[in-house]
Simulated assay, not measured.
Amino acid sequence: MITVVDIVVPQDIHLGPLLVIAPAITASFAGPVLTGAIGVLAVAAQAYIGLHLGVLSSRNLMVQIAALAGLSALIVSFCVVRERRSRELAQVRSVAEAAQHVLLWPLPDRIGPLRIACLYLAAEDEAQIGGDLYATTRVEGGTRVMIGDVRGKGLAAVGEAAVLLGAFREATYQHTSLPALAAALERSVSRYQADFEPEGEAGERFATALLLEIPDVGRISRMTSCGHPAPLLLNSEHAVTVPSLHPAPPLGVGGMGPTGYALDVFSFEEGDTLLLYTDGVIEARDREGDFYPFAERAARWAESSPEALLHHLRGDLLAHVGGHLGDDAAFIAIRRDPIHQPGRNHGDRPP
């Protein structure tokens, strides 16, 4: 278009130098090959303009052609460097994503009579995990779940989260009670937390955790809190209840034995949904400084499946904070489905 216009307009108007726009724009969306081809085409167009006007051999046009060729070469070299760095960044991201998935394994969609969905929203840009964590394990006759939050951000928080997850996956099979499991986690965190303490934060690292044990048969579930907020219990009537909780200090604060942790019980009925979360959810603020009304919003979608519930909460939470969280946020939604046993009526409740 520039070439055609330059030929049509009067001879005292010269638009040929604008041809450098072509390779410059191409570099924004294409690679070095196509950018180089457009650069060659721009040089040819400049030469054609000179030939058409009969000034191809003039010193002025020769300088313009040389300058256009030089700028096109610089743009192509920029594309080469950009593509190489993009490949390196893609490799780094793939390794980081693999490491993140190894650390925080995705939870299964179903464990026994439980349907499970999880969601992690990282506050750090380009990150998928941070200091929040969750895990599930099968034990005899039921399922154990842990959700936790490590103080701080960055690599130190990720390292502490890895220690806590590894300790939970190993110790949950060695201790029959949740208080004993909490005491084992306390010992593991206290033993290794010094390895991840940044300078100036000695003795200030800790982690909150909520441990749950949900039986396959029966409605009485158990939980032990190490400084972590209580879950929400949603039923089909859009009612939200908070089970009674007696939290102990967070892990890493003080060496407590099994007797220092309380065992709380609550009724988890068929069709109910248990919603676990970290403090990044309830402490999220909007521009006016108002906290996110978590329980009120969760009640709106109490009848939804675990996956749909977390989908609604994710969009609603991000809309509340304007699209960017100040802290990591994690959710686990657990729905207890009815157990249908041969020889039993649909409405019968298991013993």
Score class of each variant (00 low, 15 high):
204 E>G: 00
148 G>Q: 05
349 R>Y: 08
345 N>F: 05
289 G>F: 01
65 I>P: 02
48 Y>K: 10
22 A>S: 09
89 L>V: 06
101 H>C: 13
63 V>A: 15
222 R>N: 12
82 R>V: 03
191 R>M: 14
106 P>D: 11
62 M>P: 01
284 A>P: 01
127 A>F: 08
145 V>Q: 03
275 L>F: 01
112 G>K: 01
47 A>C: 14
348 D>Y: 00
300 R>W: 14
43 V>G: 07
47 A>I: 12
228 H>K: 03
234 L>E: 04
6 D>Q: 05
291 F>P: 03
258 P>W: 14
266 F>S: 10
298 A>F: 03
134 Y>H: 10
227 G>F: 01
19 L>H: 03
104 L>S: 01
151 R>W: 13
166 G>L: 10
269 E>D: 15
154 G>Q: 09
236 S>K: 05
345 N>V: 04
172 T>D: 10
167 A>N: 01
152 G>A: 07
82 R>H: 11
218 G>M: 10
87 R>Q: 14
122 A>P: 08
339 I>P: 01
182 A>F: 08
17 P>Q: 05
230 A>K: 05
98 A>G: 04
40 V>S: 08
188 S>K: 12
43 V>N: 02
294 F>Y: 10
17 P>F: 12
191 R>Y: 13
208 T>W: 08
68 L>N: 05
297 R>E: 14
152 G>S: 06
159 G>M: 06
274 L>T: 03
344 R>E: 14
142 G>F: 02
29 F>S: 12
320 H>Y: 08
196 F>K: 04
147 I>W: 02
248 A>I: 08
271 G>W: 11
254 G>Q: 14
151 R>K: 14
28 S>R: 14
229 P>G: 05
24 A>D: 03
178 L>I: 12
303 E>P: 10
290 D>V: 12
334 I>V: 15
228 H>D: 09
132 D>Q: 13
307 E>M: 08
295 A>R: 10
313 L>H: 05
227 G>S: 02
44 A>T: 11
315 G>S: 11
204 E>S: 10
129 I>M: 06
178 L>T: 07
296 E>P: 02
184 A>T: 10
47 A>Q: 08
85 R>T: 13
111 I>E: 11
84 R>N: 07
142 G>I: 00
17 P>E: 13
321 V>I: 09
53 L>D: 11
84 R>D: 00
129 I>T: 06
210 L>K: 05
275 L>A: 02
221 S>N: 03
234 L>M: 09
40 V>W: 01
164 L>R: 00
243 P>E: 10
178 L>R: 06
244 S>E: 15
